[in-house]
């Protein structure tokens, strides 16, 4: 009985999660191409299957069967390891995100979350901060100056934007002290999703979302902050020398980061899987969750289609001289609110 709870159920959950995430990745690329096409008054992919739904599958097959090339002067070990180092953390982020309320199956209550650890919040920060290694090492091991510049940009960008992101998350953690009975607050994403907080506190939390969204764009290296690959300056940045399935892994990582960041943002800012009638019909939970994530991904694509890319020094200056102080002020005001309430 014990091994069912310890090994079998988490194993099945992990497999389902990975399959769903990878399918989500494939169709996130489809959604992006389709939407960007519409934003630019084009049709977007429409050849394979109705609405171009077969394009992600065709892309995947193409990537797998391309020839693999390792540059002669590359650091072979790191060059091969880097894509794996990039994608593993991207897949791990979702382990602590609750996608729905507990459901009862065969007389057992199964929580729709791979690991309900009480440090879920810190897990997200830890895994996100480790995710940068794949990009840095990939860029360095390629032995190409454009790749190296992309890798350097990644490390500076990630470190800088982690600060405002972390401080905004600390402010949100402070608000959880108003939702727990003992007044200690919690780091578990499951409890954060389930707790009830007063409506005015939600209004204050949503004020932080635009700032958090900016840090999300920078942390996932998405347009307009895609400096690690800036195609008009650095060819393709850190992934210039990568092809075939290794390039596909980097490509996957980018989209998995988006999905993961959206999952965390939905859990923290928008009540996760909660919605009308979800207590009566638990299966609605994952549907609400997916709907909220797709809405956020749409926001990502919208930003990438409509905002031009700044210069790299502007990006860092913006972070340190504006976003960071603003998030500190937000933290201070949140502390006052939480103390007075």
């Amino acid at each position: 009985m014990d091994w069912i709870n310890l090994v079998l159920i988490p194993g099945i959950k992990s497999v389902i999660l990975v399959v769903v995430l990878l399918t989500g990745f494939a169709y996130a690329t489809w959604l992006e191409r389709k939407l960007i096409g519409r934003f630019q008054l084009r049709l977007g992919p429409n050849r394979a299957w109705p609405f171009g739904l077969g394009h992600p599958i065709a892309d995947a097959l193409k990537m797998i069967f391309k020839e693999e090339i390792i540059p002669a002067r590359a650091d072979k070990l790191l060059y091969v390891i880097a894509p794996a180092l990039a994608i593993a953390p991207a897949l791990l982020i979702f382990a602590v995100v609750p996608v729905g309320p507990g459901i009862t199956l065969f007389g057992q209550t199964i929580s729709l979350q791979v690991a309900d650890v009480n440090i879920g919040f810190l897990w997200v920060l830890a895994v996100a901060s480790v995710g940068v290694y794949g990009v840095i090492l990939g860029g360095w091991a390629s032995n190409n100056k454009y790749s190296l510049l992309g890798a350097l940009r990644t490390s500076a960008q990630m470190l800088s934007y982690e600060l405002p992101m972390g401080i905004l998350l600390i402010a949100l953690l402070l608000t959880t002290t108003l939702g727990t009975a003992d007044g200690f607050g919690t780091l578990s994403l499951n409890q954060i999703v389930q707790m009830d907080r007063p409506w005015w506190l939600w209004l204050w939390i949503w004020i932080a979302f635009p700032f958090f969204f900016i840090t999300m764009l920078a942390e996932t290296s998405r347009k307009p902050f895609d400096f690690p690959e800036t195609e008009n300056e650095l060819v393709a940045g850190f992934q210039t020398e990568y092809g075939s399935i290794k390039f596909a892994l980097f490509y996957m990582t980018e989209y998995l980061h988006i999905i993961g960041a959206c999952g965390v943002a939905v859990s923290v800012f928008f009540g996760g899987w909660r919605g009308p009638f979800v207590e009566q019909v638990p299966i609605l939970g994952p549907l609400y969750f997916a709907g909220k994530i797709i809405a956020l991904i749409f926001l990502f694509i919208w930003a990438s289609a409509s905002v031009p890319r700044p210069r790299y020094d502007q990006l860092l200056k913006f972070c340190w001289t504006w976003l960071f102080p603003v998030s500190l002020i937000y933290l201070a005001i949140t502390a006052v609110i939480v103390t007075l309430a």
Binding site: L122, W123, A126, V127, S129, V130, I136, S155
Partner: peptide
């Protein structure tokens, strides 16, 4: 908690800075 902080501070920030300088 210590494990998470270890990864965040040392793994996520300090070694990244080391790599940055080395590069």
């Amino acid at each position: 908690f210590l494990a998470a902080v270890q990864v965040i501070v040392y793994g996520g920030a300090i070694v990244v800075l080391f790599l940055f300088v080395v590069m």
